[in-house]
Simulated assay, not measured.
Amino acid sequence: METRINAFEKGKKAMGALFTLSGYLKKATIERELLELVDFRVSQINGCAYCLDMHSKELRAMGETEQRLYSLSAWRECPYYTSRERAALAWAEAITKTEVTDEVYRTAKEAFSDEELVDLTLGITTINTWNRFNLAFANTPGSYQVGMFG
């Protein structure tokens, strides 16, 4: 693979803006474990190996089970996700694939307050942006350590 620019080094202002968003999300109304689960699922959809490595490690450190991680791409068929998690995963998939239907919106509104839904949407759009940066500039998976970015 061709060597690519280091976006963290050459794009400090842009990366700083993303880190600010990520910092906000750590204090958001949505529980951290749910945001990590959504981050992992969106990273699966986008095929971002670096983010899959990162979020699987963070989830395991939070006590997430291997069974739930391995089954996440088939969450609709698995009994071990809560209704709130299912609503968040459906919302994440809809936004990531740009197919937000009225039904998906209604389900999300039943599970989340207005503020929570805005924070969840910000989380989803932020991980999509991180995925695209990591795919464009080819960050190597495997090097992430739990808590590395705060």
Rank of each mutant, 00 (worst) to 15 (best):
E64F: 11
T140Q: 14
A7W: 14
Y24E: 12
F40N: 03
H55E: 05
A90Q: 02
S22K: 08
G11R: 05
R76H: 15
R41P: 01
A28C: 11
R68C: 01
T129R: 04
P141A: 14
D53V: 13
P141W: 09
D102C: 09
T98W: 07
G47D: 12
E66G: 05
T98C: 08
A111H: 05
G123H: 06
N128L: 09
F8V: 13
R84G: 03
Q67A: 15
P141Q: 13
P141D: 09
K27D: 01
E110P: 00
T98V: 14
T126I: 00
V100L: 15
G23V: 01
L72I: 15
A28F: 02
A28Q: 00
E36I: 02
Y70M: 11
T101C: 09
N131M: 07
D119G: 04
E93L: 01
T98A: 10
R86V: 04
T96I: 01
N128F: 03
C51L: 03
A111Y: 08
T82E: 09
R32N: 04
L135D: 01
I45P: 07
A108N: 11
A88G: 02
F112C: 06
A61M: 08
I5T: 08
S73D: 06
H55D: 05
A92I: 03
C51W: 00
F40A: 12
A92Q: 01
V38E: 02
A87T: 06
K57P: 11
E64K: 08
V42A: 06
L21W: 04
K26C: 01
V118T: 13
T29K: 14
T98S: 12
T20N: 14
R84V: 15
A108L: 13
H55R: 03
Y144K: 02
L34W: 07
E58M: 01
L18A: 10
Y105I: 12
T3N: 11
Q145C: 07
N46S: 09
L120N: 06
C51P: 00
Y81P: 06
F137G: 08
R84M: 07
E103W: 00
L72C: 05
F112V: 11
T125I: 13
V104G: 09
S73E: 07
E64L: 05
M15P: 00
M54D: 00
L34F: 05
F149L: 11
F8Y: 12
Q44A: 03
V118K: 11
R76V: 06
I127S: 05
F133H: 08
T140W: 00
K27T: 05
N6R: 12
L25T: 10
R32M: 06
E66T: 11
V118F: 10
A108T: 14
N6G: 02
K97L: 11
A90N: 00
M15N: 06
I30D: 04
I124C: 01
D53E: 01
L21H: 07
A108S: 15
F137S: 05
F149E: 12
